[in-house]
Computed example of a mutant assay.
Amino acid sequence: MLKPLALLAISLGSITAATASSGDAWAEFAAEVEKGCRAATADYFADPTVIVDPFGSESFGLAIVSGDTASIVCVFDKQTKTVEIGGELPATVTLKAAD
């Protein structure tokens, strides 16, 4: 009986460690995306707000970088670590109802 309990304890311990390191890895990833997106939009915004999708897509980190009057979509390539940005989008968007 002790052997199965020992195995269970070891298994649970390794799951907890994997979860913690995985959380740390995602936090590092988000910080890397934010840093890259801030640098890529430095010519547009002096002190932007950066909202990073915590996980991104399978291939890309995603963020929205916003200033006072506009926002820019930022895409971070997970493999090459390069950043691309879209054009400026207005800060407010008016949606029309379908007819």
Rank of each mutant, 00 (worst) to 15 (best):
G67Y: 03
V73I: 06
D53V: 07
V93I: 14
F60C: 04
A17P: 02
I72C: 09
L12H: 02
K96C: 10
S14W: 12
A63V: 07
A27E: 12
C74S: 05
A39V: 08
L2N: 10
F76Q: 05
S59K: 15
A97G: 15
L12F: 10
V73Q: 12
F60S: 13
F60L: 12
G87R: 03
T82H: 12
D99Y: 06
T80A: 12
L7C: 06
A27T: 14
T82N: 11
I10L: 15
K78R: 15
S11Q: 03
A17F: 09
A91Y: 09
M1G: 14
W26P: 01
K78F: 06
A27H: 03
I51K: 14
I15P: 01
E32V: 02
E28C: 04
A18R: 11
D99T: 08
V52C: 10
V83D: 06
D47H: 10
T92N: 08
D68G: 08
A30P: 03
G86W: 04
K81G: 02
S59D: 15
D24L: 15
L12W: 12
A70R: 08
R38W: 05
W26H: 07
F29S: 02
E32P: 01
T82Y: 01
E32D: 15
V73P: 00
A98N: 12
Q79W: 04
C74N: 05
A39W: 00
D47S: 14
A25E: 09
L12P: 00
P48R: 06
E34W: 03
A27I: 01
S66W: 09
T82I: 04
L7Y: 11
V83C: 02
F55I: 14
T19S: 02
W26F: 06
G87L: 02
P4G: 13
F60P: 00
D43L: 01
G13L: 12
T49S: 13
L2P: 00
A17Y: 06
C74W: 01
C37I: 13
I72N: 03
L95Y: 13
T94Y: 03
E84T: 14
Q79D: 13
V65A: 09
D68T: 14
A70V: 01
D47V: 11
F76V: 03
A20Q: 10
E84L: 04
T82F: 09
V65P: 04
I64R: 14
L62I: 13
G23C: 01
A39R: 07
T69N: 11
A42R: 10
S14G: 00
G61M: 07
A40W: 05
V50P: 07
L5P: 01
E32S: 15
A63L: 10
T80I: 04
A46P: 00
A30C: 13
V93W: 12
F45H: 05
I72T: 08
I51F: 07
A20V: 13
E32H: 10
E32Q: 15
P4Y: 12
C37G: 07
V50S: 07
K96P: 00
A20G: 00
A30S: 15
A18V: 06
V93Y: 11
D47Y: 02
G87W: 01
L7S: 09
